[in-house]
Design a protein around this nucleic acid. Structure first.
Lengths: 200, 200, 200, 200
DNA sequence: CATGAATGAGGGTTCATTCAT
DNA sequence: GATGAATGAACCCTCATTCAT
């Protein structure tokens, strides 16, 4: 019995993941309101009714994805920052990790973060929370940037601004890849960093 | 008897513009399918029924905006490239013009260009046409970039890739502004160009 | 002034006729609710707004047509019955007149008379009035039939029933003509009467 | 787990029938465009939304009815013609079968067959197909008529024309019954045939 | 008088959500 | 749990009707 219960819990988790994976893909491709619950269910290989055994509503799926996504991004930073490396190398690790972030996640991050901030269909508090998380992440990268500037490795300038550009370019290359746009042989993390190197 | 036919035509044009302006703002803010015709009508200050005197469907509004937007972007390039200036200065003019592009237009360009390319709700031919226009624009900027490289002003590297980054950063700063994110005192066209200057 | 007013009245009448003629054609072709006021206006060569200078509503147009149609049918009978002829010849005149009744009128009569009687969108009193007129017309033809039976010219049998069949066949031939269905060389009034001749 | 799949299929069929039965009645009574989906749903005892689980659109319901109706009429002929009887008796069987054809079916046949042929809201090919089926049916009855003429039982004359009149009268009596018009004691199949008997 | 812009009630259709099986 | 029939709110769109010009 206990064993079954445990297995059941695992199955539940797995199903949740299937649904969320289907949802993020469709949300990114078509937008939230253009995505039907039955689309998600079909892609997850279950009936639309069953979705409601795992999530109370479409909105809950969206919010769940949003939270996961934000946390995932922060966790991505955490991991990079936790390593005992110089600031510059930590930045490189951030870029590397961004680089291998699943595409849907990156796009979701990119797309809905912005949508969220101008949308009036989202509660004030949620917006605040997202802004806070988002700002915090930027600040952490900016701090790294600042440190690397102090080490004489990166160009001068407002570290927040430059960090923003750094992240933007990192995301841009991902999106370019997803478009099938071949940008060059060198769209690697290291390559992006070269823009921000101190000019001798 | 009919009223002043000329004035009528002007009024029609004006109404169209009102509707399109309202639509682009809402599309950008909430996405196409989350935007109700009555939202558009309300923002344009007319009844929802009247919208259909000017456009056959929501989709037609979207396509109209898309076409206008693509043309507007190409025209923006045309204008900059037509001036008798060195390549580098032409690039600067492109950035300047992007910089003053109405925000909704820029966002629409940014947002829907990408959506379009992964969406299956859009006809194959439309996608091809958009990709073609989009690619052409990139190539034109890349050509400029290449010229400026030959003049010894810009950094080495694949010009298409670098042109893509240039445009991306230009858009990013605009978006950052719209978010209220203060990036620094220097988010000007010139400032962005500094990233791409040849290192001595 | 007086002259103008008179002329104006004539013009009004003419316009009314144009509208009604357009309406009956469309009503017969597509049904009342599938016919748009603007269809009628377009066919009458005027703007849809102008229709309301002549009729208060689409319903009024319909009712106007209905009344005209019923009266027209009764008048058709009146004319035939007024002539100083034997009953049999009067019946022939009825058929002849039916035969040259404008097709739209005939179809309208046929189609809407029946619709009306089962429709719940029509007031009880109107239905009663239509039934009354319709029944009266049948009775008048039946009376003629009866007379002609007494003269030994027509077959025995319930005159109301036989009159109904007579009218039905007359209408059927018209409809068949309108369909382009070529029935034979002899779909003339006289030919139809042959069915009802007394068998020797 | 799914319920009894077989039973489900049966239920679906049944629901379809409910909807179609409600629709034919309303279409006949009020015309297609004046019939609301919610009317149909209400008469079928279901919610309007559910209709769309069974039919994609109102138009599909109409077309479905049309096809069924045409086939039903042809099948009615088939059955009568398949029996090993003399031509005259086969004709009688046709009339008998028409006589017990459900009223809505008969009316639908009568009403929409004609509407269809003048309507421009119906695709050319559909019109052609309906005309073809309709013509074929007439020809089959005409062939019977011709045979019975050869047997010396029916009156001389163009068999297609006479067959048309025969069918018309058969339908007319049905319609008359539905109107509550009492035509006589003898509106039976046999009675109608008497009109077409060879005169001695 | 004549036009067509404007309104808004209402019908067709979709789809999130519930629930019997 | 799993299914999909069932519901109904809400959206897109049409069109009868009004009215400023």
């Amino acid at each position: 019995m206990a064993r079954n219960a445990e297995k059941d819990q695992e199955l539940r988790k797995e199903r949740c993941q299937q649904i969320l994976a289907a949802a993020v893909e469709l949300f990114v491709k078509k937008g939230v309101s253009a995505t039907k619950i039955s689309d998600i269910a079909a892609k997850a290989g279950i009936s639309h009714g069953l979705v409601y055994n795992y999530f109370r509503s479409k909105d809950e799926i969206y919010l769940s994805l949003l939270e996961t996504n934000l946390n995932s991004f922060q966790w991505l930073l955490d991991e990079a920052l936790a390593e005992p490396l110089p600031a510059y190398d930590k930045l490189l690790r951030v870029l590397e990790r961004l680089y291998v972030w699943p595409w849907e996640e990156a796009k979701f991050h990119h797309l809905f973060m912005e949508q969220l901030l101008v949308s009036d269909s989202v509660s004030e508090e949620l917006q605040q929370s997202v802004i806070a998380k988002s700002t915090e992440s930027l600040n952490r990268v900016a701090a790294l940037f600042s440190e690397a500037q102090a080490d004489g490795l990166l160009m001068e300038g407002d570290p927040r601004e430059l960090a923003f550009y750094l992240l933007t370019l990192a995301q841009a290359t991902q999106i370019a890849k997803s478009r099938g746009l071949q940008l060059g042989r060198e769209d690697s993390p290291d390559h992006i960093m070269t823009f921000f190197l101190r000019k001798k």
